[in-house]
Design a protein around this nucleic acid. Sequence first.
DNA 1: CAAACGGTGCCAAATTTTGTCACCAAAAGA
DNA 2: TCTTTTGGTGACAAAATTTGGCACCGTTTG
Lengths: 246, 246
Amino acid sequence: MKQRLRHDAIVRSLRRNGTLRVEELAQDVGASRRTILRDLSALRDAGFVIHSECGRGGGLQLDPQSVQTTARLSVAEVFALVISVSAMRAARSLPFADLADAGLARIERALPRDKIRDLRRLLDCLHIGQLSPHQDISDIGQMDADLLPAVEAGFLHQHQLRFGYRDAKGVVTQRQVEPQAMLILPPLWYLVAYDPAREGFRHFRMDRISAPDVIPETSFRRRHVPFEDDVCPFRDLPLQPGTASK
Amino acid sequence: MKQRLRHDAIVRSLRRNGTLRVEELAQDVGASRRTILRDLSALRDAGFVIHSECGRGGGLQLDPQSVQTTARLSVAEVFALVISVSAMRAARSLPFADLADAGLARIERALPRDKIRDLRRLLDCLHIGQLSPHQDISDIGQMDADLLPAVEAGFLHQHQLRFGYRDAKGVVTQRQVEPQAMLILPPLWYLVAYDPAREGFRHFRMDRISAPDVIPETSFRRRHVPFEDDVCPFRDLPLQPGTASK
DNA sequence: CAAACGGTGCCAAATTTTGTCACCAAAAGA
DNA sequence: TCTTTTGGTGACAAAATTTGGCACCGTTTG
């Protein structure tokens, strides 16, 4: 049997049986005592907490808190998760915030270095505030599936975005703008951008943007965005406590 | 060099160099052409999208969208992530919902089977609604760190919970109840439980619960919880679209 | 057609993993 | 104190897996 599979089998067996002796475990997964001991060492290296006691009545016990899963995530998925959970925390509706943060931190640590930098830069662009109670939110639409990648590319490579925008009256106009920030006024998300043609900042509701497109030839500098007083940058919220430690 | 490490090296090299021929890649990571081809096959199995073109000017190219991370998460962390992102989606403030869901689905698939069942049962206990605008939310406190594991154990094993509860006037009473559901009225979270001593259902704000404790000897049956009309079970929301497919 | 390139099957050589055995350390009884 | 039980380590040969080399196939491009 392959090493990896046996490791999984050991974890399963320990979880099922509570406490086991090495001999029993060896018989259970069909491997020798020595191999089991080697595997235990590897599993402990991998982060599983396995208590063991010598002598009569001794045995092995897997700390149920340490049962782990390995999941493969694409970078875009990680971004989405981080931003979603961060927004959740920002909205202060979060009894599981610490645990979720710990999970995020672990996911984040697993990212390649340059992607971590990208993620930080994206989070730098995020701001959050309170929606005015007078705002009409009855017509929230679906966001364009291509919007996230486009906005992401726009932010990270400082490229202008072109898209169609349908305003509150339903009139669609073509825009070409410099993306400067994203603003969350739950439950609405806005793209805050500088429009060179109109020489000023504009807020675009993200569910009203259609057919977004990155213009690779373009480039621009980041500007100071004039936010309202009650808008707070995401990075000022205490995020990912796990990243600092270790 | 170990297989796993070489696989990582291949991904790194492809990401660095954009497009490469098999020969070049082999030289880069110090392995033979045949081994590289075998590794490529394994990587594709593992979910990496690697484009290849035959003939002159051909070569390999890693789809940057598919760059993946493997993260090890504890089960509690997965629960916290799933519940957080699900709540996010329920609050309808979610431009990245689909991606985050896909990530969650992948994480969920990686869980051991019985833990998936536990997760489903936990989600079954979750309900969400709208907080009345008259509610005073100025005194939201920190949730007890022991509460989540206790509530989880209570739900999953049908054990009663004992805890101290501080009501709106600041008076603390001892309770021993049957946990029946969790109710989210953003930004507040409530434990909905049946109190046998008082013969009725009670809502407990989770940030006002202290010193929670599971009473393992006890057991109870699930009851039909009388919810308000605007309260909706979590499971009725379209969750984890990825889990159904495949 | 020939050359450049990715991809596959096969098999012996290289490498890693496994099992056996001897032995140590700690805990629990007798 | 002595014996038994049980986790843990080192060494080494046997077993299993991985690797490299080779021949060969299919596709694309000039």
